[in-house]
Amino acid sequence: MTDDDRLSAVLKEPDPRAGAAARRFAERAAASWSTDLAYATLASPIGELLLVASRRGLTVVYYADRGIEAPLAELAATRSPRIVASAARLDPWRRELDEYFARRREAFDSPLDLSSLSGFRRRVLLATARIPYGAALSYKEVAAKAGSPGAARAAGNALGSNPLPIVIPCHRVRHVGGGLGGYTGGVERKRALLAIEQQHG
C-alpha cells in the first residue's frame, strides 16, 4: 500500500457518527420547522402508511404499498422540496392512528393542514370529515352537504383524491343502495376500516 492509499483510506474511513448526525439534523429541522414538510411511516393493520405534516398540521396520509419514494417526489415537485424524515414530529398523529386501529379512539384531535384543497373538493372533504364514527352517508348526501345536490359523481371523484384517508373518513361514504363504492387504498381496506368501527360500537 502506498502512502497515498493509506492517507485516502484513513480520510475515507466510514464513521457511524455521520448517520447519527444526519438523523439529528432531520429531527432538529422538523422540530424548528426549518423544513416545510416532515414525514414518518406507520405500520398499521391495513398496511404501511406514509404520514406527512406541515407546520399547520397533517397534510398527507398515503397507503405506501409501493414505497414512499414516489409520493415524496410528488410532494417535492408540487408542495416543497424541503422535506425531511422525523418520527418525533409525526408522533401526535401516529399515536392517534394507533389508538384508532386499536379501537380506543373515534375522532382525531391533532391539527390538519387542508391548505392544498379548494372549491368543491374542499367542501366535499370537509363535509366528509364531519361524518361521525361508525356512521355512513351516500355520495349524494355528501354532495348535498357540499352545496351541490346533483353532483354525486363529482363528490365521488373528490373523495377518490382524498389526501387524508382514514383521518378524513371517506370510507364512511357509500352508494345509496348500500353498495360500498370505491376506495383510494382498495375496497378491501374500506371494508376493514368499517369493520373496525362496527366492532367498537
Binding site: R17, A18, A22, L72, V84
Partner: peptide, 16 residues
Amino acid sequence: PPFQVVLDRHSDEVWR
C-alpha cells in the same frame, strides 16, 4: 428530490 434524499446520499461524505 426531497431534501431527505440529498441528506441520505451525501451525509457520509460531508461528515468525512
